[in-house]
């Protein structure tokens, strides 16, 4: 029995290790290619081991450090502020929904769920944000559209509250004369760290990876996030170098390691999100465990 179990563990670990490798290998290709010289890539192709190490792409980016650091600043600001606000609004919405005694809770749940299926399209949203709220060229344009981007998060959180917070705890809080807000703040939230961390991570990823809102609402490049910068460089390199209208001198594009720059910026954009993930992971599985079970 013991030997059989051990062999079984070996086998399972081997399978998982293989899968983990498959997940990580493309990243290694990305990193190693970003430190290969441009002409090496064009001549010999991408490979896992750089044949000729060169940091020319990073050196070019360093030239532009002001812009990159600024973009990092915007990304971090938007991600932190957005995630915190998003968690606040989501949990405030989800908690009353989780209360079995809440009037109209089914209707309200449907009201929220419905938003996942229908949307009005880009133009009206743009009109609303720019004409009504004047969000254009503000950080709010990066934060507001994604605050409750996914009604699913409200649903998960509601379920978590429903299944993990015993009614008795809330009742006893009421007995002690605590108001609803105080119960939520003092009792419910501390018991709900796993789900907060889980939704928090999702929102962090969403905010970190968002480039669409920047593409639409920003013309001021000082507000560009890392993803916007990456996206813009990718697109502009294509456009600028493919257009041939100019009669003036075109040495702007000459000498740029365009291929490796893209990779290097991709690396710079990916690393932080990978770095913070372990901090959330502690709560991650637990948060989903209870949250995703339907109540």
């Amino acid at each position: 029995m013991q030997a059989k179990e051990r062999a079984y563990q070996w086998f399972i670990n081997a399978v998982m290790a293989l899968l983990a490798c498959m997940c990580i290998l493309p990243f290694i290709l990305l990193v190693s290619s970003s430190i290969t010289s441009q002409s090496m890539i064009i001549a010999n192709g991408y490979s896992f081991l750089p044949r000729e190490i060169s940091f020319e792409a990073y050196a070019y980016i360093w030239n532009d450090a002001e812009r990159i650091f600024n973009a990092y600043g915007v990304t971090i600001l938007v991600t932190v502020l957005g995630t915190v606000l998003s968690l606040a609004v989501t949990s405030l919405l989800a908690y009353p929904l989780s209360r079995k005694d809440m009037p109209h809770r089914n209707f309200l749940a449907f009201f929220i769920f419905f938003t996942m299926l229908f949307n009005g399209g880009l133009v009206p949203v743009y009109l609303l944000y720019t004409q009504f709220f004047e969000f254009k060229n503000t950080v709010w344009a990066l934060i507001f559209p994604m605050l409750l981007t996914n009604a699913f998060y409200v649903m998960i959180m509601r379920t978590f509250f429903q299944t993990t917070i015993p009614v008795e705890v809330i009742e006893s809080g009421k007995m002690d004369g605590a108001g609803e807000l105080k119960i939520f703040y003092k009792i419910v939230l501390p018991l709900s760290l796993p789900i907060l961390a889980t939704i928090g991570l999702f929102q962090t990823i969403n905010y970190w990876n968002d480039w669409f809102n920047g593409l639409i609402f920003l013309t001021d490049s000082r507000l560009y996030s890392i993803q916007n910068l990456l996206n813009r460089i990718l697109l502009d390199v294509q456009y600028l170098s493919s257009m041939d209208f100019g009669t003036a001198q075109d040495d702007l594009m000459a000498g740029l390691p365009t291929e490796t720059i893209r990779l290097a910026i991709a690396v710079i954009g990916v690393i932080p999100i990978i770095a913070i993930y372990p901090f959330f992971q502690r709560f991650f599985v637990k948060g989903l465990t209870v949250g995703a079970v339907k109540g």
């Binding site: 593409l215 697109l235 294509q238």
Partner: peptide, 8 residues
């Protein structure tokens, strides 16, 4: 920027 031109 050229890449965002059509959309914006």
């Amino acid at each position: 920027s050229a890449g965002a031109w059509s959309q914006q």
